[in-house]
């Protein structure tokens, strides 16, 4: 295998390079950037989106998408806060919250395969629905969570922040599922061609539902970390986070058209987005500029990807033309 092919197989390389460049620029901008505490805080800030992005990678790799994750996040937080307030039982609240997050994710998958509606429309509908359900549940109240919940968001274990540990665990599980199991391989195959996957007798429906369920449970975990960090339920939780999550996945090197993806890339993508925030912050940029920059970065990434695909197609066409000419 040539070096070029070998490198092109490492699809998270571009985002890793971009992140490295961002790190160098930021350390020039501020001497405190490269400090241990600051790098740790970058990782903690990225953990919520990074965990969600790992789940989202499985969905996007099947050529799907889930824009309801922000609403699932909100619903899970609401349910947890409400149960804690009403019953005071951690066991019950944790179990219910994570179970619900998984079920809501899986429901998206079931709707998509059962009624063959495009994922974008299906999850747009459930996005509104789940958010409404959450508001209905709490009556749009702000609910504080007990102080010891803060451990999940700000605590440390063996002097490593808990969110980073959780991210590491999710990353390890995600990598294993993606690379070592049939589910991971089938998910990529389905994203390549659902038709061929059916012809090869792969369990297309099961794998699809499982991918969306995985998106749900990672969102559930992220919701609990976020809730712990914020200290209580607020009505704005999760708004717009689906954009950041999908952006992290796409920046990471996963193709929106499906079939090709990387878990590591998605995590680095989430970190990269935090670095942009960090940099703008260091430059004292107006808070309104943040979204402009992040949106542009995503657009540039997508355009670069598209251009490379177009160039590849053009190359194939030229080869074809040359062959026709040669037979003349």
């Amino acid at each position: 295998m040539s070096l070029k092919h070998r490198l092109s197989a490492v699809n998270w390389l571009p985002i890793a390079a971009a992140t490295l460049v961002a790190c160098i620029l930021l350390s020039l901008l501020s001497s405190s950037f490269m400090s241990y505490t600051n790098l740790q805080s970058v990782l903690v800030q990225a953990s919520v989106t990074a965990i969600m992005a790992i789940g989202m990678t499985f969905i996007i790799v099947t050529a799907g998408i889930d824009i309801s994750v922000g609403a699932i996040l909100f619903f899970t937080s609401s349910l947890f806060a409400k149960l804690m307030m009403d019953t005071g039982s951690y066991t019950l609240a944790f179990a219910c919250a994570l179970l619900c997050a998984t079920v809501l994710g899986a429901l998206n998958g079931v709707l998509i395969i059962k009624y063959k509606i495009t994922p974008l429309i299906t999850t747009l509908a459930t996005y509104t629905m789940y958010r409404g359900m959450a508001i209905h549940l709490t009556g749009a109240q702000n609910i504080p969570v007990p102080r010891e919940m803060g451990f999940l968001g700000n605590g440390k274990l063996l002097s490593i922040p808990v969110p980073i540990l959780l991210l590491a665990v999710v990353l390890a599980v995600g990598l294993y599922l993606f690379n070592a199991t049939r589910f991971g391989l089938y998910a990529r195959a389905i994203g390549n061609s659902a038709q061929s996957a059916r012809e090869s007798n792969l369990p297309v429906n099961k794998v699809t539902v499982f991918a969306y369920a995985l998106g749900g449970i990672t969102t559930g975990i992220a919701a609990l970390i976020l809730l712990a960090r914020v200290g209580g339920l607020q009505s704005g939780i999760g708004i717009g986070i689906e954009f950041t999550v999908i952006a992290a996945v796409v920046l990471g090197g996963t193709k929106l058209s499906g079939g090709d993806g990387t878990i590591v890339g998605s995590v680095i993508g989430a970190i990269f987005l935090v670095l942009i925030d960090n940099g703008l912050n260091l430059m004292n940029a107006s808070p309104y500029v943040y979204d402009i920059v992040k949106g542009s970065v995503l657009l540039i990434a997508v355009v670069i990807d598209k251009v490379s695909v177009t160039r590849q197609q053009q190359h194939l066409l030229n080869q074809r033309a040359a062959r026709i000419r040669a037979t003349g």
Binding site: A180, R182, A189, N192, S196, S200, N201, L202, G259, D260
Partner: peptide, 27 residues
């Protein structure tokens, strides 16, 4: 052709009858 273009040759050949357990493919 019904191949999965972003998967490897080995993955394509074996995909409908993978060796190992479902939870751990024997690459």
């Amino acid at each position: 052709l019904s191949l999965f273009s972003s998967l490897s040759v080995a993955q394509n050949i074996c995909i409908s009858d993978l060796p190992g357990k479902p939870g751990r493919i024997d690459w």
